[in-house]
């Protein structure tokens, strides 16, 4: 609406423009700027209210006890509503993951960058294609052509380090933030 000109404001009646008009413009601009700051400040609480609440954040960290997991077994824990795959890898799996030629990989990453301790692979179990949960956690599951995980939705194959090897997924399975509290327990998040 500011596109149209107005009889008001500038004041067709008064002869004294100049300095008065400048001061008036400044007042209008300053008031408009203050109003803009006010509107922006009011918007923030509404936007921020859609961020995770305090009780949600309180559960955003989980401690996982690793001691019951045997070599070659996997468990799935829930973290932030998502499955986290924790696999205690066998020596063969570690060796297979380490021996891959990085040039062959779609999303190159050495095995050492995928784990903190070679035995323990901790990943977010969500296919990077369209968000399905890949198979391969249970011993009876299909593990794909590379002995890791296989996504049944559109046929993505992940290797024993959770790297994408074949199929439509563009990236390796994501790694959550985690830290070893002791040798047999980790905190995810």
């Amino acid at each position: 609406m500011s596109d149209t000109t107005h009889p008001a404001g500038g004041g067709g009646q008064g002869g004294h423009e100049g300095e008065g008009a400048t001061r008036r413009d400044f007042l209008y601009l300053a008031t408009g700027a203050v109003a803009a700051v006010g509107v922006a400040s009011v918007a923030w609480p509404f936007i921020d209210s859609m961020n995770p609440a305090a009780d949600t954040l309180a559960l955003a960290q989980i401690d996982v006890d690793l001691s019951p997991i045997q070599v070659g077994q996997s468990i799935t824990v829930t973290w932030r509503g998502k499955p986290v795959f924790i696999r205690r890898r066998t020596e063969e799996e570690i060796a297979a993951a380490a021996s891959v030629n990085l040039a062959e990989l779609r999303d190159p990453a050495p095995d050492s960058a995928r784990v903190q301790q070679p035995q323990w692979l901790v990943m977010v179990g969500i296919c990077t294609h369209l968000g399905c949960v890949p198979l391969g956690q249970k011993s009876t599951d299909p593990k794909g052509d590379y002995g890791g995980w296989f996504c049944p939705c559109h046929g993505s194959h992940y290797d024993t380090a959770g790297r994408i090897r074949r199929g439509p997924a563009p990236l390796n399975l994501a790694l959550p933030e985690y830290a070893f509290l002791t040798d047999t327990s980790i905190r995810v998040g």
């Binding site: 609480p45 209210s49 961020n51 609440a53 305090a54 009780d55 949600t56």
Partner: peptide, 13 residues
């Protein structure tokens, strides 16, 4: 009460 306690700015809204 969760809005009042946990949601960001929930008490304000």
């Amino acid at each position: 009460e969760r809005i009042m306690r946990d949601v960001n700015f929930g008490w304000l809204i």
